[in-house]
Amino acid sequence: MDWLLQQLINGLALGSIYALIALGYTMVYGVLRFINFAHADVLMLGAYSAYFIAPAIHEVMPLPSLTGTLIIVLLSAMICAGIGILIEILAYRPLRQRPRLTVLITAIGVSLFIEFTCQHKAVFGADTKPFPQLMPVHDFNLGGLVIGSNDLVVVVTTLILLFGLWFIVQRTKMGTAMRAVSFNQQAAALMGININRIISFTFGLGSALAAVAGILYALKAPGIDPLMGVQPGLRAFIAAVLGGIGNLPGAALGGLLLGLLETFAGGISGLSNYRDGIAFAILILILLFKPAGLLGKATVEKV
């Protein structure tokens, strides 16, 4: 029983991270209808930003401290928002009217470019760097069950950001404009919406989310390298599709589901070696029965 509960906790903690990353994927998709492959790399850049900012903050207020962490996260999120906006302006904006596949390939190109540039020894280098402990940690022991404070932070952050995003998209003027752009760019432009501004905002927000996710991921597994985003990025991408891409609660649900599945598969001897494949197998099964994802709306094709 303990074993089962502990796996449940492990799965939720892992799933929350996937959910957090998936939120960024799904939001950009919701507005622009394309998969931003570089999202996983912005996540990595977020972790590296924190890695380089942390010593400076440590001078002023010794780490680990919660306020210090908050400042580091905010600064990194701002840096990554800037990077995200820059990527959009330089690489995606010139392609806005082109077929989506063109943009997808460009996104893959951008992703590879960031990864290989960062691996160069003049940038970060390919080796794994120890990530500093930003926050005080405590493991809560509840009669054989262990809950790490980092995991709690991840769960809470994911929930806050999910609601925050939902609020922005559904309840603010900016969000209304985002939804309008998502429905029909031309019509939105005719209504006086500044498309470029909205898309920049979306990218900035998505990249800031990636930075937060990257830092939390690095706190959970404190070794960072330029390819650290690839694996969770792929999982989050699956999670986003699983939940119905473009759908915020769907991304969260997909992430949690994937985290739980992987954890239960991983905990069984003889099945743990198939862990990578199991996530995909279940994804395919679910998509066969719900082709638009769990919470996605099935669209009827217009003639």
């Binding site: 074993w3 502990q6 796996q7 492990n10 799965g11 903690a13 892992l14 991921y217 959970k220 597994a221 650290m228 694996q231 969770p232 992987e262 954890t263 239960f264 598969a265 991983g266 905990g267 743990s272």
Partner: peptide, 8 residues
């Protein structure tokens, strides 16, 4: 990056 399932 997550080994808790197996370690549990």
């Amino acid at each position: 990056k997550d080994f808790k399932a197996q370690l549990t």
